[in-house]
Design a protein around this nucleic acid. Sequence first.
DNA 1: CCCGGCGCGGAGAGCGCTCTCCCCTGATCA
DNA 2: TGATCAGGGGAGAGCGCTCTCCGCGCCGGG
Lengths: 343, 343
Amino acid sequence: MTTDGARLPTLEDVAQVAGVSRATVSRVINGIRNVNPELHEVVWNAVQATGYVPNRAARSLVTRRTGTIALVVSDAETHDDDPFMSRFFSDPFFGRVVGGLLSTLRPARMQLGLQLVGTDEARKRLVGDLRQGQADGAVVLSLHPDDTLPALLIDAGVPGVVIGRPATPTPISYVDVANDRGAALAADHLVAVGRHRLGMITGPAHVPASADRAAGFRAALSGNAIPSVEGNFTHESGDAAMRRLITDHPDLDGVFVANDLMAQGALSVLRELGHRVPDDIAVVGFDDSSAALAARPPLTTVRQPLEDMAAESARLLIAHIDNPKLIPQTVIFEPTLVARSSA
Amino acid sequence: MTTDGARLPTLEDVAQVAGVSRATVSRVINGIRNVNPELHEVVWNAVQATGYVPNRAARSLVTRRTGTIALVVSDAETHDDDPFMSRFFSDPFFGRVVGGLLSTLRPARMQLGLQLVGTDEARKRLVGDLRQGQADGAVVLSLHPDDTLPALLIDAGVPGVVIGRPATPTPISYVDVANDRGAALAADHLVAVGRHRLGMITGPAHVPASADRAAGFRAALSGNAIPSVEGNFTHESGDAAMRRLITDHPDLDGVFVANDLMAQGALSVLRELGHRVPDDIAVVGFDDSSAALAARPPLTTVRQPLEDMAAESARLLIAHIDNPKLIPQTVIFEPTLVARSSA
DNA sequence: CCCGGCGCGGAGAGCGCTCTCCCCTGATCA
DNA sequence: TGATCAGGGGAGAGCGCTCTCCGCGCCGGG
């Protein structure tokens, strides 16, 4: 039965065919209350016959639910042609998160929407849009610390879950990887391959993840002083940091670098200065990003179970949507070490 | 002005504050018709004061537009824990497409929704949902040939654009890369690095992309007979194909492999059989996927301008949405060669 | 001076759905 | 047998918005 593009069947049409009222059809569709089994079947047949599909807009207009959650990628300052964004999207990181979210969302018959916000103005607008039925809640992927979005969501009363612990303590649910234990994994590995003179290149001290990684690395090697230099998570800063580190401590035979991008920079410096990796000095990164694979030699690195983390964040979000007074939850996942050639 | 989570301001509220009718506020919001400039400003101030944001559901209920387009990933048979899907999402391919779409969508103030369909039943349901206001149209990413989705979309009158030429001629807009010229690029490169005894591992003959690649490679080397073996785009089939190819033609000094995954398989076979790459035999892949980077040695490959293709597909889709009688369009993009170590 | 035209803004009818009432029927109990 | 009650189903009031229709006032032309 095709209504040749003209008008799609509505509840009213189905009711007419079934010989019942709109209300009854609605009850059947939504599977609520006790409807006479006979009638139930009559209605169901009418639905099949007409090819009825509920109109989403009409439904959310009254239920105030959209059945959609938004994945918000929140960056410091994003323009459409921002090279960083294109780098971000071409890293598997993003896709792994999407895959994880979808694995939770599909069984719950919910949709995933994608949002990109770069400016504070965009963040405000986003929150307004969310309140007005853009989505029922948001999973936030912050690409920088001190993101104002979590706070905005809370103020607006929009359910939200953050991937990665917010820099400032915020009463919002989040999932994260045990950064400290990831770093410990790196330390253990370096020790296991016989390295004793270890150094570290950290991320910015004010970023929770990098602070945790640095602390975890030190804790795993308690008792030894670990020379370290701070970078800012970029390739270039890794380059500069490694240069300083190896100059000050020419005898290092193992380095833990707080992310793959910096590790890549570090590797190129080491090659330039004639240090063989891993023979002279072993390098372990963090993230298992595409940079780890692209590095020469391929980088041994710490991997986060992103799919699981994303799936859990969706579960948490749905819980918050279903129960607005649920208190914020925190779920921490265990990282794993991916051994490649650099250590 | 915060309406403490109770009731969000509506058009009516704004109208009240501004001392005009709902209709006038609507006109201002949507920037239509000639509204007295003074009134315009009064209304605008009222909007600011109340923090009004239009309700999406209510608006689409009457306009029959959602301001959302769906990115549909259509696969042969997908389960939530399908290893293929997780592989797909962890390849940059997906993210690059999303980034490209977003670059067109954001300026148009449209949203991106994500859909995954694995079964024909899911495809049918999707089309129903789309007609009923899930989205205004769909960009289809088919992961296998002979996808029924394009046809379903056409039947339902849902605007759609496909990334990659459909296997069966279908009256639907699509964007694609010039697969034949990509293969020619590979041929030219192999010749340029002094290879003369060339072979090829093709994809399945019935897949348009692989047929085009094979044809393009042959055309670029017109006059010479090119030994070739057919694979099915998997790592294993690349392995098997290379084994046969090199056994039958031990003197080959260059191979074009129709995708990176097979090329990776080919490389491992060559290493196993003691052929040095690229010294003894050069290998060129296709796709510039993460497999190309992961390969030993890193793979020289043909790259598709995915971001541009996705951006264009969004543009096409919007054109189709705005003008339902627009005839199907085709846009073909030029590939580029990414030279790494394997050739 | 009157009339037609035009520009501007208000009234109000829906869009398709959910859900609260309320009525009706039939069963139960005194 | 009559009163009570529970459960099933209908009527209808919106949800917040857009957009057509219409009326009012001002202008210019006959």
